[in-house]
């Protein structure tokens, strides 16, 4: 696929270009800041743009650049790479969009398979959330949510974690080596136990619903 990237650290930018090319992707351009990426993508079509969160324009140029890109090219997939997996940035990323978008740690995309899998899921419209962060949110939800999450069965917590990574039902079934029907049943149980509306179980809405639930400080917040 066609990929553009913006990253102010030359070492990481060069390494990423090489890995993308080794994975068989076409790098249509690599810039050191967000404004140059916007300019580049005005003339070069791409499937996915990779953005460093912490780059010029400071302080979090990746996010403001992504807002401009989403407005100009609604179908362009967006992958944020960061040195930090913070819930704060995850919520800001999901404010930009809940489809064809991803947020991963820089050192976690360092293989052809992982990088390609991440990019493919984003190009296909999915949300990809750093598993390290999804796990932390499920293991340590906001204090008012802890009792409810702790009361889920072990298997339900696994399913919740994979939902928080943005996985589809098929993706969850594949990861857990179970039938999709079983996943649907777990998800229905989880939504019922968390008190989330059943219509939020639709894929894109449910990632936001699940993450908001884990992060929020009290009922209705």
């Amino acid at each position: 696929m066609r990929v553009a990237l913006a990253e102010d650290g030359a070492l990481f930018r060069d390494g990423l270009m090489m890995l993308l090319e080794a994975a068989g992707h076409e790098v249509v351009g690599a810039t050191a800041d967000g404004d140059a990426l916007v300019e580049l993508l005005a003339t070069e079509p791409a499937d996915v743009a990779i953005l460093d969160i912490r780059m010029p324009p400071e302080p979090d140029g990746g996010l403001v650049t992504a807002e401009r890109l989403r407005a100009a090219h609604p179908k362009l997939g967006l992958l944020f790479l960061s040195h930090y997996a913070e819930a704060h940035y995850l919520m800001r990323v999901l404010q930009i969009g809940t489809d064809a978008i991803g947020y991963r740690l820089k050192e976690k995309v360092g293989s052809v398979d992982v990088l390609s899998d991440t990019l493919t899921r984003i190009r296909d419209g999915e949300i990809v959330i750093e598993p390290v962060l999804a796990r932390r949110l499920v293991e340590r939800p906001s204090s008012s949510r802890r009792d409810v999450v702790a009361a889920l069965s072990g298997r339900e917590q696994e399913v919740l974690r994979l939902m928080a990574e943005g996985r589809s039902n098929g993706g969850i079934a594949h990861q857990l080596v179970v039938m999709p029907k079983a996943v649907e049943k777990h998800i229905a149980n989880i939504f019922s136990k968390l008190g989330l509306p059943a219509d939020a179980a639709e894929h894109h809405r449910r990632v936001l619903a699940v993450l908001t639930y884990l992060r929020s400080q009290q009922d209705g917040a």
């Binding site: 990481f12 090489m18 890995l19 820089k106 976690k108 995309v109 293989s111 052809v112 990088l115």
Partner: peptide, 11 residues
């Protein structure tokens, strides 16, 4: 960046 170079090596 080193993790990316290791990934290339793995390829």
């Amino acid at each position: 960046a080193l993790t990316l170079h290791l990934g290339l090596l793995g390829q």
